[in-house]
Amino acid sequence: MFAPKHILLAACTACTLTITPALAQQRYNLGRPATPAEIAGWDIDVKADGTGLPKGRGTVAAGAAIFAEKCAACHGAKGEGSVANKLAGGGGTLNTAGALKTVGSFWPYPTTLFDYIRRAMPHNAPQSLKSDEVYSLTAFILNVNGVIDAKAEMNQATLPKVQMPNKGGFKQVVD
């Protein structure tokens, strides 16, 4: 019927949705193998444990400069929001009528921020940023949210370890 009941049912429905049945079905021999080079060009997702993060590094200071140039027009100088989303603030508001969801107040994983900027931002030129730029922008946005220190460097090893304030804020229902 509707969600609250599903919370109770979560444990069992999660299984039915994720079961892998024994598979012995016909093949049609359509399509062709994807080459490693082809896959490398499109395989841009980054998982919560950091799998998929590319080599490279970025700092808050470098991120501030890139943000001013490529992001601030839509998101405000420090991510306070403009024509597009607020990227900072909202801490402590989630259980109030004025709940404000931002990277700092709401996002559970720092890796999602890297993934999203790399695939979708800047809005007017998606997939145009280099890895170092994405690390730097990620560092800057985490810093304006008070999540990481101004001196912190973000890279394959450090980013997945960043603890987001709302990390424990999600119940996985899978239904």
Binding site: L17, G169, F170
Partner: peptide
Amino acid sequence: DGTSLQFTFH
């Protein structure tokens, strides 16, 4: 309560 449900698909 400020927590969120994730993967509410149906």
